[in-house]
Computed example of a mutant assay.
Amino acid sequence: MRIALFEPDIAGNVGTILRTAACFGVPVDLIEPMGFPWGDRALRRAKMDYAAAGDVTRHVDWAGFLAAQARQPARLVLATTRGAVDLWDARFRPHDLLLFGSEGAGVPDHVHDRADLRVRIPMRAGFRSLNVAISAGIILSEAMRQTRGQAA
């Protein structure tokens, strides 16, 4: 299981996701460009003392990320408000790569179309989306529950 963040905008959200991933022993891929300089004070504050325990790989762009994934293929599971499968109906696998879009724009169509599985978190009518860090925690938790935390 891995988490990938596509062109994240907000350092605090990335820091929160890195902290969550470190707690669960899940590696994180950051797909640049990011909307903040790496090492930003807000990012450090959100990671707190978990920074050393995290496994983070940075990719210069989407093409670089795909090239790296070709060496270690995984099913790409996209969290999206345009998802075809409700989280409760999704079936996760231990080697899944959970992809989350940027806070402001999500992912472009070519990234959306590349996903092997698109998952949405069911919400009350009239609500658009959750914070990306909250979404990552919810989806990661369900994926880990289903796979019993099996490492990739």
Score class of each variant (00 low, 15 high):
S129P: 00
F36Q: 00
V85Q: 06
D113C: 01
I139P: 06
A67E: 10
N131A: 07
G54H: 11
T20V: 06
R93W: 07
A115P: 01
F100E: 09
G15T: 00
E103Q: 11
A90V: 05
A133N: 13
W38R: 12
G137F: 09
Y50P: 04
W38E: 15
C23F: 10
F127N: 02
R75K: 05
V26E: 09
I31H: 14
D40Q: 13
M123W: 09
I3H: 12
G15S: 05
A22N: 08
C23N: 13
R118Y: 03
A52Q: 15
P94Q: 03
L140H: 06
A105L: 13
S129Y: 06
F92D: 11
A125Y: 14
C23Y: 07
L30Y: 02
A21G: 08
C23I: 00
M34G: 06
M1A: 07
I134E: 14
V107Q: 08
D96W: 10
L98S: 03
V85L: 14
E7P: 08
R120V: 03
D109Q: 15
G12V: 00
D29L: 01
L99R: 02
A70Q: 03
G149S: 13
M34S: 02
A67L: 08
R82C: 08
S141D: 12
R58A: 15
H59M: 14
M144G: 06
D55T: 13
L99Y: 05
A125W: 12
I138A: 12
R118T: 08
P27M: 04
D29T: 05
F65D: 01
Q146G: 11
L76M: 10
A68W: 05
A115H: 02
V28L: 04
V60P: 12
R44Q: 15
R2D: 03
L30R: 04
A143G: 13
A105Q: 15
R71P: 02
V26P: 10
R75S: 08
L130A: 02
R45C: 11
Q150R: 15
D61F: 05
G35V: 02
R58D: 15
V56N: 01
L76P: 00
S129K: 00
R41C: 07
G39V: 15
I17H: 10
L43A: 14
G106R: 09
D40K: 04
M1K: 09
P8H: 00
V28D: 00
A51I: 11
A105H: 13
G101Q: 01
F65Y: 12
D89T: 00
G83M: 12
